[in-house]
């Protein structure tokens, strides 16, 4: 547990590990993490929009908050938990090979279309 923010960290997802040890020693680790995190959440938002869902980071950018249009929300700690939770909320599997999803992602306003 982080004593400053009270967050429990049980597992760091493989995609969220900092890859460059040099960056960490130079104190740039947190900036890199935040940048990667922002990019990741933005892309997940575009994907989930196709299923009528949205996603945001919690205040500390360590958890994801997945929501639907009825106002239901679920907080998940990592990408490993996000996809099953989103699939349950959407009521169907989320498949990155789905041609309809890929069509939507190719459009410029994928995130905001309804």
């Amino acid at each position: 547990m982080c004593v400053l923010c009270g967050q429990m960290f049980s597992e760091i997802h493989w995609s969220e590990r900092l890859l460059d040890p040099e960056a960490v020693t130079q104190g740039a680790g947190e900036t890199t993490r935040r940048q990667n995190r922002h990019a990741r959440t933005r892309l997940i938002g575009k994907v989930l929009a196709h299923y009528g869902l949205d996603v945001s980071d919690d205040w500390s950018a360590t958890n994801y908050v997945v929501g639907n249009r009825k106002g239901a929300q679920q907080v998940v700690a990592s990408l490993a938990e996000l996809w099953p939770a989103a699939s349950r909320m959407a009521g169907r599997p989320l498949d990155p090979l789905d041609p309809a999803l890929l069509d939507r992602l190719r459009r410029p306003n994928a995130e905001t279309e309804t």
Binding site: E16, L43, I44, A80
Partner: peptide, 8 residues
């Protein structure tokens, strides 16, 4: 980051 989202 996009690769991680996709592969996951």
């Amino acid at each position: 980051p996009a690769f991680g989202v996709w592969l996951g």
